[in-house]
Every structure is written in structure tokens, then in C-alpha cells.
Amino acid sequence: MRSTDADAFLPLPAPPLLDREAIHVWIHDTGETRPRAVRDAARATLDRLLGGYAGDDRAPVIETGAHGKPFAPALPWLDFNLSHAGPYVAIAFARGQPLGIDIEPLDRRVAVDGVAARFFGAAETAALDRIEPGARQPAFLRLWTHKEAVLKALGDGLGFGLDRIEFDLADDGHVARLGRLAAEAGHPSDWQLRPFEPVPGVVGCLAWRGAPRVVQPLRLVS
């Protein structure tokens, strides 16, 4: 899902057809830096896209589930999820397929050792410890986006437990595979994971539990 010359810059309300074999991932640079302004811009972007998929100039009402995952009751056929990092917003859409997306800036400062020891599985923490210090933070952030994307696809949020979803890491710090997860979340082979870099310096992951689909990256023009 790296940006390519085929990425679309489309006016709305006319997003491309979203069929049952596809997932659309929209990336938008809001141009904002203040956290509240970014959140407001993310919501405006979501409203604009939902209206486009619904074929209606009016944005549908958005509600949240028990664990905070947003949904549009008027569009039961459309699943979506969003994340923002710095000025960037990522929003994923699919028909009849719950999904989760997360993006993180690589320059985000994190106390990697402390957070991993407290919230991650023992094997993940040990794998991070083996990575040379300069690559440890990017490895942690890639791993974090994978965990968050799965949690958001499940709809349970962080309350599900970060340590109940474990990934295997390659020696270079990239995520190799989903190794283990709690039984109620299915088998690792049930899951599709698509790491991506929407822009230089930002990493992300898209996750869903189901059959493979074609992921189409798109960009929204302000």
C-alpha cells in the first residue's frame, strides 16, 4: 500500500465504486498541527467521505460502540475505521467487513522498554531487546500499529489486552507474522494484515479478520 502513480486524487461526492472484494484506504494531509484541529479535520474528512459513499451531501450520524468504535447506523453495509498521526488522517472503508487501521509517526518519542515490558508479550519484549538501539523505536511503533489495528478491527480497544495479541518480529525489527492471539479473536490464519507507509516518516497497518481483499490506496484533496 505504498503510494504509487496510480493513487487517486478525486473530488467528492464521487469516490470510486467500493465492491465487496475491495478495501479503500484514504490518506489526507489536513495541514493542521494542533491536536484538536487535527481531530476536527479528521472528523470533517470522515463526514465528507461517508457522504460520498452514501451519495448524499449530508453526512450520516455517527455513533460509537461499547468500546468506542465509530459506526454509521444509516449505513449498515459500510464498515470504516480511522486513525491520525501528526497532520495525517487515514480512513479505511469496506463493505460488510469490520476492519481496523492505525498510523504512527516514526519520530514519536516512547519509553520503549518500559511500555513493552508492561503491556507486550514476553516474546515480543525479548525480540525488541535484541534489536540494536537505533532501530528499536521504529520497530516498537510498527509493532504498535499492528496491535492497534487488530484491536480496532475487533472493536474492543485497548481493554482487550495488548499482551493477548502477539507478533513475531524479524531481526531487522519489521513485523514478520501474527503469532498468537486470544481464542475469542480467532486463529492467526484468519487475519489479514497490511503494513504500509502513507508518507515518509509515518508507518501504519490495516487489519481485518476474513478473506483477502484488494486494498486500494487513495488520497483526498483539500
Rank of each mutant, 00 (worst) to 15 (best):
G179L: 01
A127Y: 02
A37R: 15
R95M: 10
V150A: 04
P198R: 03
A149W: 01
S83Y: 11
L128A: 06
D7G: 05
V25C: 12
V25F: 07
P133E: 09
V89T: 11
L75H: 11
P11F: 08
D156W: 02
A182Y: 01
V38F: 05
A6K: 10
G159I: 04
L106Y: 08
I27K: 14
L151F: 02
A74F: 06
A127Q: 05
D7E: 09
I165L: 00
L141V: 05
I165H: 04
T33Y: 07
K152H: 03
L75N: 09
H24L: 11
A176Q: 08
D163P: 03
E132I: 11
D5L: 15
A66K: 12
K69R: 15
V199T: 08
G173Q: 00
T4N: 14
A176D: 05
F167A: 00
S222K: 15
G65I: 09
R39T: 04
G114P: 06
H187R: 13
W26F: 09
A185D: 01
W208L: 07
A72N: 07
M1S: 15
A111Q: 14
R109T: 10
V110G: 09
H28G: 14
D168M: 03
A211L: 13
A126G: 12
G179T: 01
D19I: 04
R213W: 11
G159W: 02
I62F: 08
F167H: 00
H24S: 09
G161F: 00
D57G: 15
V38S: 06
A126Q: 15
G55T: 12
A139G: 00
A149Q: 01
V25E: 07
W208S: 03
